[in-house]
Amino acid sequence: MKEFALIFRLKDIADFKPTPEQMQERMNWLAGIASQNKLVDKGNTLLPSAESAKTVKPNNVVTDGAYTEIKEFISGYIVVKTDTIDEAVEMAKANPIFDQVGGSIEVREVLKRD
């Protein structure tokens, strides 16, 4: 099996704090993957606010907040294991985030550093 990172992006900082119902739906989604024994790493949430995020660029340039060149910012990630990338994409499609607040999920195969 291959491993894929699912990287979550949101459009608006205001979407970052989910309601309890949204949280429950996201937990159901995550636990659903774990129930198939396909969750490698339940990952973490990455805090986007100015005091929790900095972006470092060449020449010692540091900006506050999450990197938002493409407007969306990364809000978290998990790692799953599936036979094909298509299967990982299907998992991502089922994430309740799209109905809740929109955003995007990037699916990336993991190459392990040994």
Binding site: N28, A31, N37, L39
Partner: peptide, 17 residues
């Protein structure tokens, strides 16, 4: 259900699933 969600994240087992 919420407790089972947490449980399956701690440790996978077919019975828990």
């Amino acid at each position: 259900l919420q407790l089972y969600n947490q449980l399956i994240l701690i440790e996978y087992s077919p019975i828990t699933a």
